[in-house]
Amino acid sequence: MRSKLPFYLKRFGVAQGLRLYFLLKSKRKGLVRIRIPQARHPIYLRLGTSDRNVFNNIFVQGEYDAVELGNHPQTFLDGGGNIGLAAVYFANRYPAMQIVSVEPESENFKMLQLNCQSYETIRAVQAGLWSRSTHLDIRDAGGGAWGFQVEETDRPTPASVRAESIEALIRANGGKPFEVVKLDIEGSEAEVFRTCTEPWLPFVRALIVELHEWMIPGSSASFVAATAPYNYRKTVSGEYEVYERQDLTV
């Protein structure tokens, strides 16, 4: 596997790049606090977990760098917030944008709160994204802390998490539609786009999505059917497909 050290050196400089590279590559366990030029506030990571992979994707390899959100977007939904690093990235890049970051899994959500606590523009919500309000069970799909999946349950337990629709999150956000929606929700996009998209999708200027057809067959079909009425320009940024509305003028 190709070493990521050159990326660290390019992003953070020689001294800091070397220090961060060997710190995050070590076999140590525990919580670390790091500072990087790309973030106004410290970033917290759990050593020995997939947190390093998330950090590498976003801040080292720049998987969102090609995403251009024109017209100064004011509202952003971060679906599948994980430990909050996507929210932190966009909060630093677009300081005036109000971000709602949604993550269902409890330990990840604690990290999300920790990473986002110093940003007044980020609001953290513990929930799973779904097409309606219900309850979800969380299961590990084998991807570690960045690969949890959810499934609807008729019998909620203390371990279940609430599910929220994007429409409900808009109501909780003072009725302000989300201009940008980022979704990395491990196959739940099949349900999110399957139905009840009319209250929110027409107002979205940009979609940043990772479809998980290999996890949940039908994810791509739901997405294609829901977005078919609108005119998008598609680009790719890292593992994400970016869809920018070309027919939205208001």
Results as ranks from 00 to 15, higher is better:
residue 16 Q to D: 14
residue 146 W to G: 12
residue 35 R to I: 02
residue 10 K to R: 15
residue 55 F to Y: 06
residue 207 L to P: 14
residue 105 E to M: 11
residue 72 H to I: 04
residue 62 G to L: 01
residue 229 P to W: 02
residue 215 M to F: 03
residue 134 T to F: 12
residue 194 R to V: 09
residue 157 T to Y: 13
residue 140 D to I: 12
residue 95 P to G: 07
residue 132 R to D: 10
residue 222 S to Y: 07
residue 189 E to F: 00
residue 101 S to F: 02
residue 181 V to Y: 04
residue 116 C to R: 09
residue 180 V to T: 08
residue 88 V to Q: 08
residue 185 I to M: 08
residue 49 T to A: 04
residue 3 S to Y: 08
residue 126 Q to H: 11
residue 198 E to H: 07
residue 1 M to H: 05
residue 242 V to P: 14
residue 181 V to W: 05
residue 250 V to E: 12
residue 156 P to N: 11
residue 51 D to H: 08
residue 147 G to R: 06
residue 77 L to S: 08
residue 244 E to I: 09
residue 114 L to F: 00
residue 128 G to D: 00
residue 228 A to Q: 15
residue 158 P to L: 13
residue 93 R to P: 10
residue 153 T to G: 15
residue 80 G to M: 06
residue 241 E to V: 06
residue 73 P to I: 12
residue 17 G to M: 03
residue 48 G to V: 03
residue 87 A to Q: 06
residue 223 F to R: 05
residue 130 W to Q: 02
residue 90 F to C: 05
residue 75 T to E: 11
residue 111 M to T: 04
residue 192 V to W: 05
residue 206 A to L: 11
residue 221 A to L: 00
residue 139 R to Y: 12
residue 13 G to D: 15
residue 39 A to Q: 07
residue 99 I to T: 09
residue 165 S to Q: 15
residue 65 D to E: 10
residue 25 K to M: 10
residue 4 K to V: 11
residue 231 N to P: 04
residue 84 G to Q: 04
residue 246 Q to D: 07
residue 190 A to F: 02
residue 161 V to F: 13
residue 51 D to R: 04
residue 5 L to N: 04
residue 207 L to A: 13
residue 21 Y to H: 12
residue 67 V to D: 05
residue 212 H to Y: 11
residue 162 R to T: 09
residue 30 G to S: 10
residue 63 E to D: 14
